[in-house]
Simulated assay, not measured.
Amino acid sequence: MEPVPLSEDGTAPDEQAIQTTVALEGDGADIASARHLAVQFLTRVQAEHGLPVSQRALEVTQLVVSELVTNARKYAPGPVLMDLRIVGDLVEVVVWDSAPVLPVARAPDAGRVGQHGLEIVMMVAQGFEVQMEPVGKRVTVRIALLDDPSGAITGRRPL
């Protein structure tokens, strides 16, 4: 699995873009590889671009990548594309898969075993959206790079 930086139109990235895209075509090992790529990406963002990234942002990004890639591998046939990019003070995790079904967070149920991933992702993210594509769907999750200076846990911003 080798990351390939691309712009949105598929051409070489401009010098301002900080992103990486990878196609995940294998098995369950893709999930660990995707988490590892996320850490490498955020470490590179810190080292090469001087952007601060909190330990929480690293951990939450790994969690989000794990949940999104797991769901894509579990419910969609074929390859999965993952894009990581910096947008202002956020990291966007974008996962595309070929399944034409929208993901739905289930109602909270402490007695339910499993299927809590989407609930968790929505709680730790600054933003969550799903876009239907001509083939499949694209899930985008935004995560704050820094913790709130007041010490508050960074999560979904109130409307």
Rank of each mutant, 00 (worst) to 15 (best):
Ile18Met: 05
Val94Met: 04
Pro100Thr: 06
Lys137Val: 14
Glu8His: 00
Thr61Gln: 05
Gln19Glu: 09
Gly117Pro: 01
Gln46Pro: 12
Val65His: 04
Asp147His: 00
Val139Trp: 13
Leu68Gln: 06
Val60Ser: 00
Leu84Ala: 07
Val60Gln: 04
Leu37Gly: 05
Gly50Asn: 11
Leu24Gly: 05
Asp83Ile: 06
Arg157Asn: 14
Val135Met: 15
Asp109Lys: 04
Val22Ser: 06
Met1Leu: 14
Gln55His: 08
Val93Pro: 00
Pro77Tyr: 01
Arg85Asn: 08
Leu159Val: 14
Val39Lys: 13
Pro108Gly: 06
Arg138Tyr: 10
Leu24Ala: 01
Asp30Trp: 10
Pro134Ala: 09
Gly88Tyr: 11
Val104Phe: 08
Pro77Ala: 15
His36Lys: 15
Leu58His: 02
Ala105Ser: 10
Val64Phe: 01
Ser66Thr: 14
Gly78Pro: 01
Val124Ile: 08
Ala34Gln: 14
Gln131Pro: 00
Gly151Thr: 05
Thr11Met: 14
Val104Pro: 03
Val130Arg: 03
Asp30Met: 09
Met1Thr: 13
Leu24Thr: 11
Gly26Ala: 09
Leu90Cys: 12
Arg35Asn: 11
Val60Arg: 04
Lys74Gln: 03
Met132Gln: 14
Arg138Ser: 15
Asp27Asn: 02
Ile120Glu: 03
Asp14Ser: 11
Val130Ile: 11
Arg138Gln: 15
Pro100Asn: 02
Ala34Trp: 15
Ala76Leu: 01
Glu133Tyr: 06
Met82Asp: 00
Val113Glu: 10
Val4Glu: 02
Val39Asp: 15
Ala17Tyr: 02
Gln55Arg: 14
Leu58Met: 03
Val135Ser: 15
Gly28Glu: 08
Gly155Asn: 15
Gln46Met: 12
Pro108Ala: 13
Val101Asn: 09
Ala125Val: 12
Asp89Tyr: 04
Lys74Ala: 03
Gly151Ile: 04
Gln131Glu: 15
Val139His: 08
Ala23Thr: 12
Ile153Arg: 09
Ile18Cys: 00
Ile86Phe: 05
Gly127Val: 12
Ala76Tyr: 03
Ala29Cys: 03
Pro77Arg: 09
Ile153Gly: 13
Ser150Gln: 15
Asp14Arg: 10
Arg112Leu: 05
Arg157His: 15
Gln46Arg: 14
Val64Ser: 01
Ala99Pro: 03
Pro5Tyr: 07
Gln62Met: 00
Glu48Ala: 10
Ala32Asn: 10
Ala99Leu: 01
Glu92Asp: 15
Arg112Glu: 01
Leu102Ser: 11
Thr21His: 00
Asp30Val: 05
Leu68Gly: 05
Glu15Ala: 06
His49Asn: 07
Gln62Val: 07
Leu102Arg: 02
